[in-house]
Every structure is written in structure tokens, then in C-alpha cells.
Design a protein around this nucleic acid. Sequence first.
DNA 1: ACCTGAACACCGTTCAAGT
DNA 2: ACCTGAACACCGTTCAAGT
Lengths: 245, 245
Amino acid sequence: MAPPARDTPTPTARTEAPTTSPPRAPLTRERVLSAAVALADDEGLWALTMRRLAQELGVEAMSLYHHVANKEAVLDGIVEVVLDEVNATVGAPGGPAAADAWQPAMRHRILTARTVLLRHRWAPRVLETRTTTNLPAIAYFDGTLGVLRTGGFSWDLAHHALHVLGSRALGFTQELFEPDDPDSGGDEAAAMLEQMADRFPNLVGMLAEVVHDDVGTLGWCDDQFEFEFALDLLLDGLEARRAAG
Amino acid sequence: MAPPARDTPTPTARTEAPTTSPPRAPLTRERVLSAAVALADDEGLWALTMRRLAQELGVEAMSLYHHVANKEAVLDGIVEVVLDEVNATVGAPGGPAAADAWQPAMRHRILTARTVLLRHRWAPRVLETRTTTNLPAIAYFDGTLGVLRTGGFSWDLAHHALHVLGSRALGFTQELFEPDDPDSGGDEAAAMLEQMADRFPNLVGMLAEVVHDDVGTLGWCDDQFEFEFALDLLLDGLEARRAAG
DNA sequence: ACCTGAACACCGTTCAAGT
DNA sequence: ACCTGAACACCGTTCAAGT
């Protein structure tokens, strides 16, 4: 009879790895940055402190300094993690054939990048504070340039287009009227405006005309729609400049 | 003979105010915010701490809390100070008659706002972090809406235009390649790219074509030009949407 | 080599006390 | 009423010490 143990997989102990797996994964730069991204995603950028990050990894704060130089390096790192994710997503094959139609290709590219950044809303804010040159960002813009060049842009016009599209794709529009509490803040702001019809006649006039469903609130800005409206404006404008030579 | 003192102004003691001026101006919310703006202008946002701000005013840190609720209130306040300055500047009379030409009027308005924000480069970054509704910002956008309406925009299109232009006028484009040290950083980044011609063929190709004076540096982005390029793109696009009805 | 405890120099903020 | 000193609970980071 063969020995039953070790060969018979039980529900709890499934296929065991041939090598002995360590009880705790050792700390690495990658693990530190992943935990930092997760922490910022879950609890916001303000929660990302060195002490809290260490706690999340089951380690003392000072241990982090063996894998990252300081907190600035953590911020540099998490931005690169997110931009790597952006590049991996937009670079996935199977997108529309970009050969003859740069506009839908660019549209798809930027809207795809946006979906990634929406999962890491803190990222654009941190990106804006980075001063060091950033490899994944360079790679992203190189890909953008590739789409433009394939579409027949001159280098000069592609250069300007990069500036225009870059601020749209990576630098988010601030949500002017986004309230802290999505339920109450809008009403509050609307009530405030209501009292100031004479001071802000245009805003009040627009509100009266544009608000659809929730009358009396300011939650009527469809962010996705506004983003695409601005994006198409830019794309059409660039196409006109391009066609003009 | 008249007494010589008190009537004869000396070079050091000029015209004395009729009321007795206090040796130290009392602390007010306005003085606190002015000092905070000046501190951020001079030494950057990172230097703006409650303790440092108090020191700048010749007072203890805790005294500030009698005039502002906390540091968030200081940040709210200095944003409003800057936006008041924006409104005062763009609202000054003597601008081009906006009645029949909305495009030059808007162009002038936004470029004027930009000159103010360039004097307070920290302001857009702080503005993006504000969650509370902000009266001077509302006033600014109301003025913008006024220009659009005078130019014949529908409320709906004016609403979208507000989003588009708002992110341009108040939310700055991050300067992707702006180095810490304007002299060395560009060369460093260019050298890095040089080594990666195969990885980033488009960027390297563009650099080879577009760089004018300082070959080998990345300091070839004229921020003002790029801003106006993007702005005109948006304005032309909006005009086309408007004319289409 | 990798991790840690104690310590330092800073934060924002509270509180009880001064005038 | 306005301002203050001492104190509290946090930061990021350094350093000498542990294994």
C-alpha cells in the first residue's frame, strides 16, 4: 500500500509547491508600492503615511526605508505603478485598427486610460506634484505620438497635440460643484445660488434651463459626457489643423 | 514764533495720521490670509504651516485659531483671495467691447486670468483640493457664462463650454518635462531619451525635428504658446458647435 | 542582510491659563 | 476679547543596536 499522506490532496492542503514557501513573503519594493496603491485606493491619499503603510504590511515603519528611499520615492513609485497599468491597458491588442482612422483610435486610447485613472482617483493629483521625469509617462506619450504620426500629423502639430491631449488625458478636470456629501451638498449650493439670482444671473438662468431630473440640485453634470464633449472638441479641432496642412 | 516741532515734517517722520496708529496692527482674518498668500508665493506651499505663518505675523501659532478655524480654512481662504484678484482683474472695464465678438472677449478674459494665476502658481493645485463651494469661483464662471450668452450660445452649449474652458483657465496643464533645475534637468532627460531611441522612437523622432535653439535639451516647450494653441482649438471648436445651432 | 526600538525635529490642534 | 505656554497625538526620518 502506498502511504496515504503527502500524495492525497485534501480540501485544505491542495497541491503543494515543490519548493518550501516562506511563511511571510519578504518585503520588496514591489510589495511596498502595491500596498501603497491599495491603501490610497481604499482610504484616500491622506491615509498614506509611512507608519500606516508599514502597519498594512505587518512591519515596522522603519523597515520600509530598506526598500524605498523616503516618502517621495513612494509617491514616485505609486504613480509609476498606475501609469504602467494605463500602458498595459491601452496597449492591449485587439483595439480598432489605427492605420486609417486616427480619431477613433485616439478616442479609444484616451477613454481607456481614463477608466484606469478613475480607479485611482488620487493618481493625477500626485502626478502633478512629481518633478522627476517619469518613464511610464514617457512611454504613454510615445504611444500617443505614434497614433498621431500614423494619422498623418507633422511632428510639429503632433507636438502641440501632445500638450493638448496630455492635459485632458492625465490631468483631470476639477469637479467644481462636486459636494462632500453627494446628497446634501448639491442642494445646499443650489439654495445658495437661489438667494443670489441678482448677483449671478447667468448661472441661475442656466440652472433653470439645463437641470433635468433632480430640479433644485447641482448634481446635473454628467462627468463622462463632459469629458467626451471636450475630447471631441479637441479631436475635431486637431483634425481641422491637420487637414489644413 | 511757531513751535518748530510737530508742524515741520522731517524726512523720517512724514505726515502723521490724525488718529493714533497702534504700534502693531491687530490680527484679523484678512491679515492672516494676506500673509499666507505672500508666504506661499515667496517660499512655496510646503512652507505654509500654521507655526511658520504665525511667525511671519509676529505672533504665536495658537493666536491664528481666533481668526481662522483651522488650516483647511486658511487654504479655503487663500484660494478665495486669489480668485478675488482674478475677478478684479478680468472684470476691469476697458476691455474689448464684447457685444459682437465673443471669441476675442473670451480669449482676453482667460489670458488675463492666467496672468494672475501665474503669480500664484500654487493656487490651481490648492483649488483642486477644495471641496466646499467657493463664491469667487462661482462669480468667475458667472462672468464667463455672461460672455458666452452675449455671444449667442444656448444655455446647454454654454454649460458644456463652461466645463471645457474651466479646466483650461483654472486647472493648469502639468509641465511634464519641467525639470527641478531648469539648467541641468532638461539635458539629463534628453540624454536618457537618447539612450532609448529604440524604445521611444516617436519621441526621439519628434525631438530631432522640433527642437530649435538648444539642441539636446528638452526646454523647447513654450508654455504660453501651448496654452494659446489649446485655447484657440477650444474656441474654434466651440464656435463651430455654436454656429451649427 | 534585513529588521527594529528609541529618539529627534517637526506638524496641527486642544486646553487651561493669562491679560 | 484676544493672546499664550504647555501638552497631546500625530508626522517623516536618523541612528545605533539587534538577529
